[in-house]
Amino acid sequence: MMKRFILTFFLVTITVSLSNGQTVDVKYLNPKFGTGDPYKHFRFGTSGEYYAGFMWNNTNGAYGNGDDFTIFTYGNRDINLRTGTGNFIVFPSSGGNVGIGTTNPQSKLDIYRRGEEVSLLRFSTERPWEFIQTGTGGGSGLALRSKVNSKYFRIQSPEGVNNTVFFTSNTASASRVYLVPHGGRVGIGTGSPDAELTVKGKIHTQEVKVDLNGSVAPDYVFKEGYELRSLEEVQAHIKEKGHLPGIPSAEEMKEEGVNLKEMNLKLLEKVEELTLYVIQLKKENGKLKESVEVLEYNLKN
């Protein structure tokens, strides 16, 4: 009875002191509330309703994973941690982690939530972004979704240069991805690209369009004054070099690769030259045909 009286007197003294704006210095505080339960706690509220509280939790899984300190509220009340002009810092002395939705965080910040379209993290700027889960089970994934239509997401250098830009839109044909738009190189299958796009492997596509960009299509072959090699000259070049005039050798192509635009233009040049050779042969064949017809006529008469 005497202990209960002393404890009541102690609490009343603290309550009166705090209500008068005074400070009570203590070295250790070991509340007896909750004795016999797996936790000790202070609660704020009235005799008929609790609002919030502090708890040292020993083994109760409802307030953590055991052996921890808990700040809790009742009902739909928030917990606000508000600083003045200072920072809010979570700094575990032994390198612990922060968990949201989990009592067993596995990284510095571990956010746990499951389900189709659940929101995991949101950046509430003027045009918000949100990380959400898509799908469930083995088909689940993580998506970065714009919460408004037509929005840019940029990856920038320390000086603000756009290295990669994503433009998202509900209209699929309006969406864009810009890789190194201000210069640089992209490598696929390689860590040392030697051009704006370097692919070490196969490319499967339906169509490739190449700009001439200063190159000249070989229609000059058909212009008057074009110096067409004679077939004898072509034959001599093939005999000496082992390849067509103006076409790289097999060794050159193996060592330096093949420039598709340049090679296609050279091959078109050869096709047009072949066309001229065919026209010449047709003319010669026509003359031979006329000569044969004259000879046949003379033989018959």
Rank of each mutant, 00 (worst) to 15 (best):
Y74L: 09
Y50C: 08
V165C: 01
F33V: 08
G187E: 00
D78P: 10
K266M: 08
N149K: 06
P31Y: 06
R145S: 12
T171D: 12
M1K: 15
N30K: 07
L29P: 04
R176E: 02
G53A: 02
F9N: 15
S140A: 04
R43A: 10
H237K: 08
V258F: 02
E262Y: 01
L265S: 07
S173D: 07
V292R: 15
F33C: 09
L18R: 12
V148G: 04
F131C: 02
T23R: 10
V208S: 01
T35I: 07
G45V: 04
V12I: 12
G201W: 00
V258P: 03
A217T: 13
F69C: 13
T23V: 10
V210R: 00
F123C: 05
G137K: 05
G246A: 07
L144C: 07
N57K: 01
V26C: 13
V199P: 00
S140K: 06
L142Y: 04
P105D: 05
L268Y: 11
V216L: 07
S107P: 04
Y74A: 11
L244H: 03
S157Q: 00
S230G: 06
I71L: 13
V186Q: 01
L179H: 00
F9V: 14
V271W: 07
I6N: 13
P92C: 08
L18E: 06
P158H: 03
V177M: 02
P181E: 00
E196D: 06
L267D: 04
I6P: 04
Y63H: 09
F10N: 12
L260F: 01
T73M: 09
G183Y: 01
E273Y: 05
K282P: 05
V208Y: 00
G99I: 04
D37F: 15
Q106T: 14
F33L: 11
K32S: 15
G96Q: 09
R114C: 08
T59S: 06
Q206S: 01
G201H: 00
T8V: 08
K151M: 14
E262W: 00
D68Q: 07
I111K: 09
G21Q: 01
T15M: 13
N213S: 11
E159H: 09
L179K: 01
K147R: 14
E116P: 04
Y28K: 15
L179I: 02
E126Y: 07
T168K: 02
S47W: 15
L265A: 07
N30A: 11
N76E: 11
G75V: 03
S17Q: 09
N104A: 12
S291F: 15
G246F: 08
G66R: 00
V271R: 14
E130K: 08
K261H: 08
H243E: 10
T83I: 03
V16N: 07
S249C: 06
N298S: 10
W56D: 13
R43W: 03
G115I: 03
Y112H: 11
V98M: 12
P128E: 14
S291H: 15
Q235G: 13
L11Q: 06
V186H: 01
E49H: 06
T171S: 08
V98G: 10
G64S: 01
G138C: 09
D68F: 05
P128L: 10
M263T: 04
S150C: 15
P105V: 09
G286S: 02
Y74F: 14
T190I: 02
F42P: 11
T103A: 04
G184N: 02
I14Y: 10
I6D: 11
G137R: 03
K40C: 03
L120H: 06
N60H: 06
V199L: 00
